[in-house]
Design a protein around this nucleic acid. Structure first.
Lengths: 213, 213
DNA sequence: CTCCAAAGTGCCACTGAGTGGCATAAGCCT
DNA sequence: AGGCTTATGCCACTCAGTGGCACTTTGGAG
């Protein structure tokens, strides 16, 4: 499907990378992130620790890989999508939905991997930290793109706030996705996303009526 | 001012804690986070590494301490503040302004510490990651409080989105604060916060007019 | 087909973060 | 003062992550 055209070397590299991700997700899920040493993981995949660190910058990164791939794909999309005359946040939200659909089109395993990645992230602070920092860096990149393409000034905080709202909505949707359904599907995720997106405009304005007392 | 009433033991502990924070901020700022080992830091403060880890959970935490203190203080405030009939986000924003004022009232060193902490966080990915994860956990706690006090359901995403918007605005303000003025003051920070808060409602709705092409 | 350059890999030794255990000292309470 | 609690120091240990070098594999050129 996606290019057998790559040189053999590249394919091999991607294969070990994928093996590392899948094995890591399995081991971490089964026994917990810090109960699994990298030596074990590498032994399982039959790869040296040195090779692991040529593919991933840290132990946390291998667990966040599936979600990071999504954000990177989304960033590419937004770089080229038309932004004209519509609310920026709406455009971003639709790009997000499209990116999720596109990722999952590449194979059903993707959904399973994202689910495991998300569950690990919720249960393991250091993975969560890594993921959040990745989102933050990616948001900064998005922000630059938006500023440039929309001709906004450096002191205009709106694009960054919109991006953070997108990130917040995405994370809320992920949390909802993995906690409600026992075996969440792609459609469940898309539904969850649309629900959260629908609630987003109210976030800045809603008034809490304190219950009687 | 704030209780010499504490038992001597506690005061001593707080003192070494403060010494660790200040020395760490100084060393990290001067030579870079990963160029300073904990052994060095501990030698400087004349404390064993074991003691360091009884005060802080990680090397990153000591660098984030001032900002974390602010969030914790804010959380306490929100626990007891009246939330009645006004937009929740507005209430949170005012609580944030009040918390900043209250923290800085305890001494002018606080502003300097926060500035160093923020600058380190921007330049050091692992500190940023730790700080973001802390905010995330704190937001989750806030969320619980808000849900309880406002009687909202588990499936209502608005409180969490509002909180994330507050966090995003705060971070944007911090970035602006440390990049614009060469030697940022407390008032600069408050001004910056108010500016970002003012821009927040537009984040969800603004439309980017693509520049002519 | 062969040989060369380049890129990926394995092995090994090393630094430094973080932890557990136990003995010691310092503050607390009566 | 004397026992009790609690923080601290010291020591040895695990494991993430890095740098160096030798070795294998691949792609490409003659």
């Amino acid at each position: 499907m996606t290019a057998d055209l790559l040189p053999l070397r590249e394919r091999k590299k991607l294969k070990t990378r994928a093996a590392l991700v899948d094995t890591a997700l399995a081991l971490f899920t089964e026994r917990g992130f810090d109960q699994v040493t990298l030596d074990e993981l590498c032994a399982e995949v039959e790869v040296s620790k040195r090779t692991f660190f040529r593919n991933f910058a840290s132990k946390e990164e291998v667990a966040s890989a599936p979600l990071e791939a999504l954000w990177t794909a989304l960033l590419d999309d937004v770089e080229h999508a038309p932004l004209g005359g519509r609310p920026v946040l709406e455009v971003l939200q639709e790009a997000m939905l499209a990116a999720v659909r596109r990722m999952s089109a590449e194979g059903p395993e993707w959904v399973a991997r994202v689910r495991l990645s998300q569950e690990l992230s919720q249960r393991t602070p250091s993975i969560a930290a890594h993921g959040l920092q990745f989102c933050d860096r990616t948001s900064a990149a998005f922000e630059t793109t938006l500023r440039r393409r929309l001709g906004l000034g450096d002191r205009d905080h709106r694009p960054r706030l919109a991006l953070d709202l997108l990130v917040a909505a995405f994370h809320a949707a992920l949390r909802g996705w993995t906690t409600t359904s026992p075996d969440p599907t792609l459609d469940d995720l898309l539904t969850e996303l649309r629900t959260v997106f629908a609630a987003t405009p109210a976030a800045a304005t809603f008034t809490g009526d304190e219950p009687s007392h």
